[in-house]
């Protein structure tokens, strides 16, 4: 039992997540003065959800940057940010969500808090997974593009109305450190704090609710999961169809059916759990194209054997 627990230890991943979060939010002066970093590194985007108004942030949030360029009166398409997201997505897909997103780490840690009833899945779970794609389309692309002011400038509507990351990483520390800002808070601030509180509370009950249902960045990276250079692979000869990988997956992915599913954040738990070592990951992994057929065939044989 102890050996199994040790095998499923997520500490190495959390260490990397924490290290990355510290590295990309290491402008210590900002935490002391309540001002944000204004150096040249802010030309660059970070791969995960990381508000650029966080006092320690060294880089730009890709979703905020995407809305800023789309909403700018000079540009209607953001080649720079879209290219960056395509590059990261094509290389590693949602590996970023599992390993390099500070808000992912916060949700991971919150989910470790004991609670009488943890929710693994519920009735609307599958449908709600599509919500993040709608949010990406409406709040990140269409509204900043078309709902513009008199000079043609759009607002970052996702950041303004939905994003709890900005409230947590930017809003709370900046308002604590700046008296003048505290006098400017109103309904919007209260609304965003309610959303943040709901997200944080739900993270205790449900594993990564923001990543599963809301995050537009996860939505973008997810479409690259099946084609990215970094891939997961299931060795059909080694797989004994025990279902251990599916049971352990907190994102409710069945790696045997699709080991590079849109929802997989590449945390590697399935790989650690597999008793026969059938799941592997790496760059340039070849995926057998007949994988779904093999699963169907196995299911058919099992059903015939059990007389169903």
């Amino acid at each position: 039992m102890a050996k199994k627990m040790n095998k499923l230890n997520e500490l190495p991943r959390h260490r990397i997540q924490a290290l990355w979060a510290l590295l990309t939010n290491s402008y210590l002066k900002g935490y002391a003065t309540g001002k944000i970093y204004t150096g040249k590194l802010k030309h660059l985007c970070v791969p995960g959800m990381n508000c650029y108004s966080c006092p320690g942030a060294l880089g730009a949030c890709p979703i905020g940057a995407l809305q800023a360029v789309i909403g700018n009166y000079n540009f209607k398409f953001a080649y720079y940010v879209a290219g960056f997201l395509m590059l990261v997505g094509a290389l590693v897909g949602r590996f970023v969500c599992g390993w390099l997103c500070p808000f992912g780490l916060i949700q991971d840690l919150l989910h470790k808090i004991p609670f009488p009833k943890k929710i693994k899945t519920f009735k609307a779970d599958k449908v709600l997974r599509y919500l993040k794609y709608a949010i990406l389309l409406v709040f990140v692309i269409l509204l900043p593009m078309f709902l513009v002011d008199i000079i043609g400038q759009g607002s970052p509507y996702f950041c303004k109305l939905i994003c709890p990351v900005g409230t947590l990483e930017g809003g709370l520390p900046l308002l604590l450190l700046n008296k003048s800002m505290r006098s400017a808070i109103g309904f919007l601030y209260a609304w965003k704090n309610v959303l943040l509180a709901v997200t944080l509370f739900l993270s205790i009950l449900i594993y990564r609710p923001f990543c599963k249902y809301i995050c537009p960045l996860g939505a973008i990276y997810s479409v690259f999961n099946p084609i990215s250079v970094f891939k997961y692979r299931v060795d059909r000869d080694k797989c004994i169809q025990c279902g251990a990988c599916e049971r352990v997956c907190k994102m409710q992915v069945d790696p045997v059916k699709n080991c590079n599913a849109l929802e997989c954040i590449r945390c590697g738990l399935c790989k650690k759990t597999c008793p026969t070592g059938a799941i592997s990951s790496g760059f340039f992994k070849k995926i057998p194209t007949d994988a779904p057929k093999l699963v169907n065939l196995t299911e058919k044989v099992i059903n015939e054997d059990t007389g169903r």
């Binding site: 508000c51 108004s53 940057a65 395509m86 308002l175």
Partner: peptide, 28 residues
């Protein structure tokens, strides 16, 4: 695409947005 975006000077828009406190992001 990134290089084309840099050529179009989109990166300056990203920079300009990232170095100012984003009032929308923090809820003000």
């Amino acid at each position: 695409m990134m290089l084309y975006g840099i050529h179009r000077e989109e990166v300056n828009v990203v920079f300009a947005k990232a170095i100012k406190i984003c009032l929308e992001c923090i809820g003000i």
